[in-house]
């Protein structure tokens, strides 16, 4: 097995995940895209473990650890999404702007750049 094949597949999966995280608006779809990126990393780890014939099986054991961390992450993420849904009635990440910086209209009395501080 040439190492190029799994590594290229994983690079493509990773960039698809990047697209999903940036383009999707529903928080659950964003979580799914994060899962895609984690899977791309897992494929990389397995391929390099097989290539290097690691006697400690570091790559595959780390893959198992990443799978466990992904399970914990998706559990916590869904709990947070549900808490947000309970209070805001929406899971639209574009509309959850409570933590965004307040963009004020530029103050004519001050020079630019100091009005927002």
């Amino acid at each position: 097995m040439h190492v190029v094949y799994p590594v290229v597949v994983s690079a493509l999966l990773f960039s698809i995940g990047v697209y999903g995280v940036l383009a999707r608006r529903n928080a659950i779809l964003v979580l799914m895209s994060v899962e895609l990126m984690l899977n791309a990393v897992n494929l990389n780890l397995v391929a390099f473990d097989v290539w290097l014939r690691d006697r400690l099986h570091g790559g595959q054991v780390l893959t198992l650890f990443v799978i466990v961390i992904a399970a914990a992450e998706v559990g916590l993420g869904l709990a947070i999404v549900l808490a947000v849904f309970r209070t805001r009635r929406t899971v639209d990440v574009d509309r959850l702007r409570a933590l965004a910086e307040v963009v004020r209209a530029p103050d004519p009395g001050r020079p630019d750049g100091e009005g927002a501080s």
Binding site: S15, I16, V18, Y19, L22, A23, R24, R25, N26, L29, D92, V93, D94
Partner: peptide, 14 residues
């Protein structure tokens, strides 16, 4: 409306 408005920027980055 599952996709946000910055879809083309996201595609470019990806």
């Amino acid at each position: 409306g599952l996709d946000s408005g910055n879809r083309w920027a996201a595609a470019l980055v990806a």
